[in-house]
Each structure stands twice: as structure tokens, then as C-alpha cells.
Design a protein around this nucleic acid. Structure first.
Lengths: 249, 249
DNA sequence: ACGACCTTAACGGTGCGTTAAAGTTT
DNA sequence: CAAACTTTAACGCACCGTTAAGGTCG
């Protein structure tokens, strides 16, 4: 019986000696014999197959821990299915990232960052659904602020756009967060802004920047091939505007 | 000017407070103000855009270090190209891994592990090109061994298959590694086995196992859509057989 | 006896998550 | 005053790469 010391076995198996020591340590691949005197590890040729098994599974994206469990329990169908799902997700992610990046490289660098965020539901007060021009929305905002005293306000406020400027007369509904514990002016409409997954971009509080944010999100969505799931939102964080496009899950 | 403490800024930006502290620590995103007394971090709303920038780049697969460099040097074309290449590779890898896994899930689990290895060039001696039947190869091996004394031999030996059994009469050429420093029987053919990238599988030294290894590699190659680049090799590691199919880069 | 090998031990790197103990703000 | 926040510090994670200081093999 020929045996191999760690270095040669590593060369044949195309891994490092350190890797083999590590696999020994975690019980993934024990040398067929270890000299108790010198602690030298000796491997048998048959273990090349085991090592190949490990490296292929690892290359498929399994963690060493999963490989270990598979080794103990036999090749389990369910585990492989889970791995498959991970791979599918990784594939999709890589694909959209690539499309995304290509869009950035193609469009002359004028793009703004777009991020996906989960937003929780928020209890808000508004003047009720209203169709108005752009300027009227600004006035409505002011009126709303006047009707909601400081101690009732949350920190979130903004506008729900039921219809955008590009579809004729814009229709916006200013809102402001209110604390759940507080009573509010009965003339106001109090409702729950539903939780959403949204594509978001940030802009300083001028018209041009906001326009660029809208363009960026639309471009982003066309690359991702996803569609709108509700009225767009604008949120004011101090003087910074957060534009949100709700997405279908 | 409204300012945000780390917790709220983190919630708005959809990251953890710990992440923000880390970004501060590595100089990626410093809070607009830090109270020197309490060391509390205070963020400004405008920084939401910077944070979004960071998270999008990170989601594209850049390391924080790369994001940092981009921030310092401006969005550099070359860097984005490198990222693109990484993404393309990741995509290809995920795709083939998935195909690979699906093949395993489809074929009734009888598959053997196949791994890709780089093999260095090896100086070998052989009896020269020969067309022979399977049994004759075994005899030729014995003769070759007889002609190469122990002290000249390397550890690698095996057979080059110039033509396989499935293409009529098999044609194999046994070889054995020889040390570069030594002279060899002048009747023998001494040459360099070129370095290759090969798909490898391991089998115990019986005919059936070897056959399964061949089948496994062929299936693997058809999934990967890659083709053969030279004669197949069989290497003996003690009583274990390593089957190698050289691949086009 | 020499060089090429092997051993253990310890630190490093990524990008934070997760306590823990203590101070701050509302 | 208590609750909800913040701070630093330190360890942990996966998977080894990389020294360093010392024994072993051919």
C-alpha cells in the first residue's frame, strides 16, 4: 500500500496542505493514518475520491458544514433542493446586477443610486383624496401642517401622488404621520399608509433633482422588469426628498 | 437643520446601527457631526443619498474597500469594468453549477464527482506510439516497468489513450514519469506530457468503476458544453485510477 | 548532513451580528 | 424616574493564507 504525505496528496488533489489540515480538524476528511509519534498525516489513494466529492460539492456552493452533514446522512434530496434554490437566486441576482451595471455604463454616468427598501405601515393624517395642480399641493401641505399640532406629529411626512404630472393634471395628497395614541382634528382623514417594498432614490429639495430621481427609478424598474404597486410617495427628511415607487413583491 | 441619531438614520436608510458605526470606523460614511463629549453620532438627511450610493455599489458586488476607493477617486470606468467581468464570471459559474446540479438531480444519483484540475507537464518514458488491443496494453505496461529501473521512476504512471474503445480498436500508450536528471534505456521514447486543464474522476482499479468514471466525465462535459483537447489519460495512484479528459482552456 | 518536508500555534481578512457593561436622552 | 436610546469593547462567523519556530524524512 502506497501512502501519501500531506504535501503530495495535496498536489494530486489540487488543494493546499493547509486545507487538508483544516478538513482533518473539522472531521471532514481524516487521513487514513496519523503517526501518533510525529503527528504526520498519511493519506491513501482511495481518499482522492472523497476529496473530489468534497470539492465538487463545495464548488456547487455548499458550506463545509453542509458537506459534512451530507457525508453523515448520505446525499439528501432536500438539501440539494435547497442548494438549487440558492443557486437560482444567485443567478437571478447576478443577472439583474449585470443588467443594472450595463445600464449605468451605457447611460452617460448621470444615474442616481436606487435602492430597494421595506417600509413599515404608517398611521397618517391627510386632507383626504384630492385632485389638484402642483401648486395647490404645496398650499394643502401648509394647511395640513397648521391643523396638526406639534405634539401629535410623527417625523414622517410627505405626499402621495395618485396621478403624476405626465398623466395630465397631477393629483397629490399630502400626509403627515400621527402618533397612534393621539386624537386628531375630526375634519382630517386618518388612515394607514400600507407597508410596501419600494424602489427609492434621494434628491435635494428642488424640482430638477426630484425629476432626476424619478427618471432614475423608472430606468431602474425597466431594467428589472418590475411594475408599480400603488401610488408613488414622496417623503421629506428635513430638506432631503425620498422618492418611493411601491413595487409588486 | 434636523439631525438624526444613529438608530433613526439606520431605520430610514435600511441598515443596522452597527453597520453605520462600521462605515464610520473605516471612513466610508462619517456622521455629519460627532458630539465630542458623549461620542454620539449625528447624521444629516443629505447623507441618505451617500448611504444609498454605498448600498447600491455593495449590492453590485463591490467590496467596501472598492467603494471607498471609488468614493475617493470618483466613479472610475475601469473599476466598473472589472466589476462587470466579475459579475459575468459569477453568472457563468452559477449557471453551470445549476446545470450541473440539475443533471445530478435528474440522473438517478449514480453520478461520480468530477473536478477540474490543472496538471503540470511531466517528463515520461514510453514504448512509443502503439495501436493495440486492451490486453496488449496491460502487457506493454509490464514491459515498460521492466525497462525502467526503480531509481529512475517518478511517482506518476498511467496510460495515454489515443483512441478509445468506443471508436473501434483501442489504442493506448503506457507511460511512466522519469526524473529529468536520469538517463533512460535508449530504446524507450522519452517525451514531455504537456500541461493540461483536465476534467478528472477517480475510480477503484476495476473495469466497471473506470467505465462509470468515463460516463460521468462525458455527462459533465456535455452539460458544460466543452470539448476534448488531446488524448485522454489514465493515471495510477496506487490502486486508484484517475481518469483525465484534457479540456480546451 | 542537507534540503525538503512535516508539525502546531497564532494572527489576518470581510462585513458585520451579537452580547455586555455603562453612559445619555426624552 | 424609567424606557429607549447611545457608546466602546470584544468575541464570533467561514475558510482557509501566511508567517514563525521547531521536529522529521530520504
Amino acid at each position: 500500500m502506497t501512502v501519501y504525505r500531506i504535501g503530495e496528496f495535496a498536489r494530486i488533489g489540487s488543494v493546499s496542505a493547509k486545507t487538508l489540515r483544516y478538513y482533518d480538524e473539522i472531521g471532514l476528511l481524516k487521513p487514513s493514518r496519523t503517526d501518533p509519534q510525529t503527528r504526520y498525516r498519511y493519506y491513501a489513494a482511495e481518499q482522492l475520491g472523497d476529496l473530489a466529492q468534497i470539492t465538487t460539492l463545495k464548488d456547487l456552493g455548499l458550506s463545509l458544514d453542509e458537506v459534512l452533514r451530507l457525508k453523515r446522512c448520505g446525499l439528501h434530496r432536500g438539501t440539494l433542493q435547497r442548494v438549487r434554490e440558492r443557486l437560482v437566486r444567485a443567478l437571478a441576482r447576478a443577472q439583474t446586477s449585470l443588467d443594472q451595471l450595463d445600464a449605468v455604463l451605457a447611460g452617460k454616468s448621470g444615474t442616481m443610486p436606487v435602492v430597494v427598501k421595506q417600509r413599515r405601515a404608517v398611521r397618517v393624517a391627510s386632507l383626504g383624496d384630492m385632485t389638484v395642480g402642483y401648486d395647490e399641493v404645496v398650499l394643502a401641505e401648509r394647511e395640513l401642517l397648521g391643523r396638526v399640532p406639534e405634539r401629535v406629529r410623527g417625523r414622517t411626512r410627505g405626499v402621495l401622488w395618485h396621478r403624476c404630472a405626465d398623466a395630465g393634471v397631477p393629483s397629490g395628497e399630502p400626509f403627515i404621520e400621527v402618533r397612534t395614541s393621539e386624537r386628531v382634528d375630526r375634519a382630517l382623514d386618518v388612515k394607514e399608509l400600507p407597508a410596501v417594498t419600494a424602489a427609492c432614490a434621494y434628491a435635494s429639495d428642488d424640482y430638477e433633482a426630484a425629476e432626476r430621481a424619478y427618471i432614475a427609478i423608472r430606468a431602474w424598474m425597466s431594467v428589472r422588469r418590475c411594475s408599480l404597486a400603488g401610488p408613488k410617495r414622496e417623503l421629506y427628511h428635513d430638506r432631503t426628498l425620498e422618492v418611493q415607487f411601491p413595487l409588486l413583491v
